[in-house]
Design a protein around this nucleic acid. Structure first.
Length: 923
RNA sequence: GGGCGAUUAGCUCAGCUGGUUAGAGUGCUGCCCUCACAUGGCAGAGGUCACUGGUUCAAGUCCAGUAUCGCCCACCA
């Protein structure tokens, strides 16, 4: 044991221990009816991703839970895996190809997909390996990937079932279109970002033939010349099909039904009336562009107007844009504005703040775009998911997320699930070439889409001739028998596979033993960013496909930010790489620090220095353990049991404190209060165990005299007992250092499989706690004097302690050795009869006077100043208490317990004050 | 426009159901390399708990409002 280094070296230990754990199969778990399961599924990270601090926090928390429950005897299973991250991965591989001078179009779909798989073979394990460095105890043999065979089958199954129930439909709607990724996106994938834009006022002239007043000069002429509309996206005007005004708007009433000429295009459009139009915004007249704006699309349906698309999928203007065709949307905007200006039709330009959608993968400005896509009808699915949370079958921690969840669920909108990319699950939809000539003519279902009813259409079954939904390619069309069948080109939204994760990873749709035993999972730990994307949808799918919630608790931790409050992201360059931190400080340090600074659900503000907290603590654990191991004779050390007799005061105290610590750490974990659990364990270990108990134990361990052989043995047993239990408490938080120490204690198994300490209430000893507290305060006040009076540390003191009560001596007797040693007192005289020595400093404690002899060195001035200050402190408190006690209301209304407590306090303070006063006078 | 969170020591933050003297880490000051640990030990200074009002015997804690910062949601072009 002597060769244990005085520095904990995480680098040398972590990797070795981790592979040890893995080799022994300690992370593995399989159904076992005799034990209760505790199951967590990992929020699958993006397969192209690398570990960032959010992952580090997320996985630290999950690992704490899993290790803790495992120690508690649960059959703990943690299922890891990654998702295929369709768009992100495709983008990455495309970028790589571009570097090689190739494009995916050149390769073709099949070859491209091969490239992606190749890429995933090479890089897909990066994040998994990084997670391992964190020390997480996942059952790696169960690692899943959303594109695996089993999970793909689950996706197909889910699609089929929903389609058969009429919950999946397709139709022509305005969706979020990313012109860069060239795919549709769900609403969640197109977050609105406040943007400084411009509002352009454009005049649409009347059609002259209508016989409006003859043109006159000046303003009047202009006014008569047409209607001014306001728009933020002038390029879309080429696709205008009408101008809408509010039917109640007096300014425009007379124009309703009249015709305008669409500038630059020359097309005739109507002025129509629609309630949607806000009289107060802009000019009160709206250009209607059904193919490029969701509201306009709704208006157009109400007025049976044909949409005109003016943009191609790549964001360039199409042939409907006439001479602007081929121009990029933003260049077209400029060109159009230029022409409008030249013709005098651009009335004015205003600055305008508005929120516009951006692609969550590439941040490109989203184009609302009319497109034929597949949707999941969410409203019927949302009902049970709302119910499950309202009835508490699923609980959120912290609670406030419940409201956010319900609010979203209650206003849920249909989910666009088709993506025009190649990497992902191809839709299990097949078409009969023969029959779909009709299918292509499917008309838009015109169910109303208002603020309260956002269902985007009804079943189109009766119109879906020649459309076959099937896991495998049908041989012939059931309608016409033709064999010319082709599959839909689109793939599904990645979240359409992720939302099945809690059960697809356990074998669904097969009825596996795993599924039966481990589902529903216990706790989901995740970041609020994906509450809607993932959490909410998992609840929906769990209830739909399993008829049971996917998890009982959802713990939402904060977002990791840098010190300025910004989200950590690569593009901002404010990233702290967890792997760097692990290399520099160790995994335990990373984990401990992350949790320490993360209050329940609060965002985390990170800086490098914060990891020193964990590093220092790991080192403290290491060294305290080192001390214990160097000073205990292991071969004789049997585990401490209650039967051990002759415990000294300090022993009784530390065992009592340990018991309380076990209780409160467990309770904190039960309530997902991780930082609290950690700090309780930290305080106990560092401040009770190291600062006091170890110090009290030192003389016993150092003294080899025969007479204390028994004491020594007992001390060793207690030391080991407390150390072992502390290590167990700390293990979920700092798995490596605790394991490293554990294995140094003796030839033994892993701490991972040890039992979580159970609090033994019979060890709680209030008397010992009180007594040690008293001894601590005696020691502290002597140290205080030493420091205040500038007494060198090497000087040994003579201390008189004078109890004011009869039994006072007894209280201190057991602790006198501690006082001597920890206050560095050579002579300690505890006598009721002692008189105050001539030259001394005084401390006043509850029930005791303490005199520190300073023969020859007493500085009366300093001593007086010191005592005065103490007295002032007491005086302030006393005044406050007395004021309270004089308050009739307080005496009458406050609980008796509180009142008597206050009274005692007042008496105590008064007594101390008097004693101080006397001492001061005597100086 | 709606919702949520934050505001406590120089800095970063805890403080759950109101009740002894409001805590920690870090930084600062002084003293110590004392035989586990200087990634350490001992002692100390530092707070009108954002502001205003209210409820209460009692408010950092509960309620209302104000201010500042931040986040999320939302089809006003």
């Amino acid at each position: 044991m002597k060769d244990i280094p005085s520095r904990y070296n995480p680098k040398e230990t972590e990797e070795v221990l981790y592979s040890q754990w893995e080799k022994k199969g300690l992370f593995r778990s399989k159904p076992d009816p005799s034990r209760k399961p505790f199951t967590i599924v990992i929020p699958p990270p993006n397969v192209t991703g690398i570990l960032h601090m959010g992952h580090a926090l997320n996985n630290s928390i999950q690992d704490i839970l899993i290790r803790w429950r495992r120690m508690q005897g649960a059959n703990a299973l943690w299922v890891p895996g990654t998702d295929h991250a369709g768009i992100a991965t495709q983008n990455v591989v495309e970028r790589k190809l571009r570097g090689e001078g190739r494009t995916r179009q050149e390769l073709g779909r099949e070859e491209f997909i091969k490239e992606v798989w190749k890429w995933r073979e090479e890089h897909g394990n990066t994040i998994i390996n990084q997670l391992k460095r964190l020390g997480v105890s996942c059952d790696w043999q169960r690692t899943r990937f959303t594109m695996d065979e089993g999970l793909s089958d689950a996706v197909m199954e889910a699609f089929e079932r929903l389609y058969d129930k009429g919950l999946i439909y397709r139709g022509n709607y305005i969706i979020n279109w990313c012109p860069r990724c060239q795919t549709a996106l769900s609403d969640e994938e197109a977050p609105h970002i406040d943007t400084e834009g411009k509002l352009y006022y454009i005049r649409y002239p009347f059609k002259k033939a209508q016989g409006f007043p003859q043109l006159r000069s000046g303003q009047a002429r202009l006014k008569a010349q047409g209607v001014v509309v306001a728009t933020t996206r002038p390029e879309t005007m080429l696709g205008d099909v009408a101008v809408a005004v509010n039917p109640k708007d007096r300014r425009y009433k007379k124009f309703i039904g009249k015709k305008l000429i669409l500038p630059l295009v020359g097309r005739e459009i109507d002025i129509i009336a629609d309630d949607f139009v806000d009289k107060k915004f802009g000019t009160g007249a709206v250009k209607v562009t059904p193919a490029h704006d969701p509201n306009d699309f709704e208006i157009s349906k109400r007025h049976s107007l044909e949409p005109v698309k003016v943009m191609a999928p790549d964001g360039k203007m199409n042939k409907n844009a006439g001479r602007f065709a081929g121009m990029d949307r933003f260049l077209a905007r400029e060109a159009i504005l230029r022409e409008l200006k030249e013709t005098g039709l651009l009335v004015k330009t205003e600055k305008h703040q508005h929120a516009v959608g951006h692609c969550y993968r590439c941040h490109t400005l989203i184009e609302p775009y009319l497109s034929f896509q597949w949707f999941v009808k969410m409203r019927p699915l949302a009902g049970p998911a709302i119910e499950a949370v309202k009835t508490g079958k699923v609980k959120f921690y912290p609670k406030r997320w419940t409201k956010v969840y319900l609010n979203w669920m209650e206003n849920i909108r249909d989910w666009c699930i088709s993506r025009q990319i190649w990497w992902g699950h191809r839709l299990p939809v097949y078409y009969c070439k023969n029959c779909t000539k009709q299918a292509n003519e499917l008309t838009v279902d015109s169910s109303p889409r208002t603020k309260t009813s956002l269902v985007r259409g009804r079943q189109l079954t009766e119109k879906n001739k020649g459309v076959m939904v099937s896991k495998v390619k049908p041989e012939r069309c059931p309608e016409c028998g033709a064999t010319d069948i082709y599959q839909d080109e689109d793939v599904l939204d990645t979240w359409f596979s992720s939302w099945l994760w809690p059960f697809s990873t356990l074998g669904w749709p097969e009825k596996t033993r795993d599924l039966e035993y481990f589902y529903p999972t216990s706790t989901l730990v995740t970041a609020p960013e994906i509450l809607f994307f993932w959490v909410a949808r998992m609840i929906i799918s769990g209830l739909e496909f399993m008829k049971e919630v996917p998890f009982k608790d959802v713990y939402l931790h904060g977002t990791v930010r840098d010190l300025t409050g910004k989200k950590m992201s690569k593009s901002l360059g404010n990233v702290i790489d967890p792997i760097d931190i692990i290399n520099e400080f160790g995994s335990d340090a990373l984990r401990y620090s992350m949790i320490a600074i993360t209050a329940t659900g609060q965002d985390v503000f990170l800086s490098r220095e914060k990891f020193e907290i964990g590093r220092n603590f790991a080192n403290k654990i290491w060294n305290a353990s080192r001390f214990v191991l160097m000073n205990t004779n292991l071969s004789k050390a049997k585990p401490w049991t209650q039967s051990v007799q002759g415990l000294a005061l300090a022993d009784r105290w530390i065992l009592s404190r340990l018991t309380r610590t076990v209780e409160s750490v467990t309770k904190a974990l039960d309530n997902y209060r991780f930082n609290e659990a950690e700090s309780i364990a930290y305080d106990f270990f560092w401040h009770d165990f190291c600062d006091w108990y170890l110090e009290m134990a030192k003389p016993i361990l150092a003294d080899s005299v025969e007479r204390i052989a028994d004491r020594r043995k007992i001390t060793e047993l207690v030391l080991l007992y407390v150390l072992e239990n502390s290590l167990k408490l700390l293990h979920p938080f700092m798995p490596f250092v605790t394991e490293a120490v554990w294995q140094n204690i003796e030839e033994r198994g892993s701490i991972m499989t040890e039992k979580w300490p159970k609090p033994d209430r019979s060890l709680i000893n209030k008397e010992a706690e009180k007594n040690i507290e008293l001894i601590q305060s005696v020691i502290i006040s002597i140290r205080n004097i030493r420091s205040d009076m500038n007494i060198p540390h090497t000087a040994m003191l003579t201390v008189y302690i004078v109890p004011l009560k009869k039994d006072g001596c007894g209280k201190l007797e057991e602790g006198s050795e501690h006082i001597k040693r920890l206050a560095r007192a050579e002579k300690l005289i505890i006598e009721k009869t002692s008189k105050k020595p001539a030259q001394c400093a005084t401390a006043v404690l509850e029930g005791f006077n303490i005199f520190v002899s300073l023969e020859g060195v007493i500085d009366f001035k300093a001593e007086k100043a010191r005592l005065r200050k103490k007295m002032e402190d007491i005086d302030i408190k006393l005044k406050f208490v007395n004021k309270r006690l004089k308050d009739d209301n307080f005496i009458k209304k406050a609980p008796e317990k509180i009142v008597s407590m206050e009274k005692e306090k007042a008496a105590r303070l008064k007594e101390q004050k008097d004693r101080l006063k006397k001492t001061l006078e005597s100086l």
